[in-house]
Design a protein around this nucleic acid. Structure first.
Length: 428
DNA sequence: TGAAATGTTGGGGCG
DNA sequence: ACGCCCCAACATTTC
């Protein structure tokens, strides 16, 4: 029986998995593998080099634990695949695509090298639409969300998710999950594991979520108004098609599904503007003088800015590996406008601490708030943390839940606002 | 997916 | 009854 290696990456699921389906369709024996290769995930973000964040590793650990059939390898992807081809005599190699520029480059090299010995095919498992499928009338990529969104609504229907398959556990040399050392030695991750019920196979909150009141409640910090599907999407434990079809026919789902298209848009931008993962998309920002204050950055990271809603949100991030989207906007506006710290510094902190760290979404979100991105918030849009808290945490229960201790305010918002307006204005 | 400053309106107190 | 003032509420403009 001929064999196919199915290389799992950010598609850690057995349902609606096109690479896996293809191998099954062809009637091949499946050799499912995950290769842990943090060096290949490395990229520059601001002043630092980063690879897989600490929170991401925690999530990855449990995602892999839920797929015990996977053969786990560690090291250089090309070398490990070559070894595996030799060991198994596989004739096919299938995987689902990723879109980070450095991963596209790596995958191309692997395809070039290994296609001499095996049949290779890659598939789309992570997006509703491939980024190269849509261009505007001038034949260039859209840079504004609304026309992109309208175009999709008019022209595209998405494939239905495919059925779930079982994998057989096969015996090939495999590293034990615990030997990847994905969990930290201290107990920082314990509250994350508890919050997400990572020890259980299914997340009840995720499955009980209804999009019915999403449009009104999605911005409320003090309600459970969002689906918290982001880490599952980031790791491919759920496909966007599954999410799309789960909510398509439910009442008032439009606002929710629109957010899925925002996710598409962020991948679209990363694909067409790959340098934007570390550089301002808007040329005007190329030489913008951000303030380099390690002290202020640290206060922000540790939730000690003295602005209750900001500090609460930073604690929520630290304790759960996740932050409410409205809170992300508030803390990002505070970092880039009140503190004038480069968005890359904030993006790097999010990268390390978010269980849903996703390069496309993280980049777009930060550039959007900083004003340097596509379809970005105008420079004068500066959030007032106290006003935001009154509006979106009227019961103050969000702040009560996540604020550990009160701090002294590290800037005067009114002054900081004026300062930011003055500086940003010089760009125009 | 803002907030603050500025402008306008209209009700009510009061001489 | 009238004009004047105050100011809240809302609208518009500006950053």
């Amino acid at each position: 029986m001929a064999k196919a290696i199915v290389w799992f990456r950010k598609d850690l699921r057995l349902e609606d998995n096109p690479a896996l389906d293809k191998a099954l369709e062809l009637g091949l024996e499946i050799i499912p593998v995950y290769i842990y290769a943090p060096k290949e995930e490395s990229f520059k973000l601001g002043k630092q080099k980063v690879d897989i964040g600490a929170a991401s590793k925690v999530w990855l650990h449990y995602a892999l634990k839920n797929l015990p059939e996977l053969i786990i390898r560690e090291g250089d992807s090309l070398e490990e695949l070559e070894k595996l081809i030799k060991e198994t005599g596989a004739s096919h190699l299938f995987w689902n695509r990723r879109y980070e520029p450095f991963i596209i480059k790596r995958d191309k090299e692997i395809k070039n090298t290994l296609s001499k010995s095996v049949i290779i095919e890659s598939f789309n498992a992570s997006l509703l639409i491939e980024p190269w499928q849509i261009l505007n009338k001038q034949g260039t990529p859209y840079k504004v969300f609304t026309p992109y969104y309208k175009r999709i609504k008019v022209e595209f229907a998405f494939d239905k998710p495919r059925a779930k398959h079982q994998l057989k556990k096969i015996e090939y040399p495999s590293i034990a999950l615990k030997d990847l050392n994905l969990l930290p030695e201290n107990s920082w991750h314990e509250s994350i594991v508890e919050f997400w019920q990572l020890n259980k196979a299914t997340n009840e909150f995720l499955h009980s979520f209804q999009a019915r009141n999403y449009e009104e409640e999605r911005n409320r910090l003090d309600l459970e108004g969002t689906s918290r599907v982001s880490p599952y999407l980031a790791w491919g434990q759920i496909s966007p098609r599954q999410v799309w079809y789960k909510y398509l026919k439910s009442k008032n789902s439009e606002a929710y599904l629109r957010q899925l298209i925002w996710r598409e848009f962020s991948y679209y931008l990363m694909y067409h503007f790959p340098q934007s993962i570390n550089q301002a998309l808007n040329e005007k920002f190329k030489n913008f003088q951000w303030d380099n204050s390690p002290e202020a950055l640290q206060k922000w990271q540790q939730g000690q800015t003295g602005f209750d809603v900001v500090d609460a949100a930073m604690n929520q991030l630290w304790q759960t590996g996740w932050m409410h989207n409205r809170a992300r906007m508030i803390v990002a506006s505070f970092l880039s406008k009140d503190l004038l710290i480069a968005w890359q510094e904030g993006a790097a902190w999010f990268w390390d601490t978010l269980v849903d760290a996703d390069l496309a979404n993280n980049t777009m979100g930060w550039q959007w708030v900083a004003g340097s991105g596509a379809d970005a918030a105008p420079y004068f849009r500066i959030f007032n943390p106290e006003t935001q808290a009154k509006k979106f945490d009227p019961s103050a229960s969000y702040q009560d839940t996540w604020l550990k201790e009160k701090s002294v305010q590290i800037v005067d918002h009114k002054f900081a606002r004026e300062r930011a307006l003055g500086l940003y204005k010089t760009l125009n």
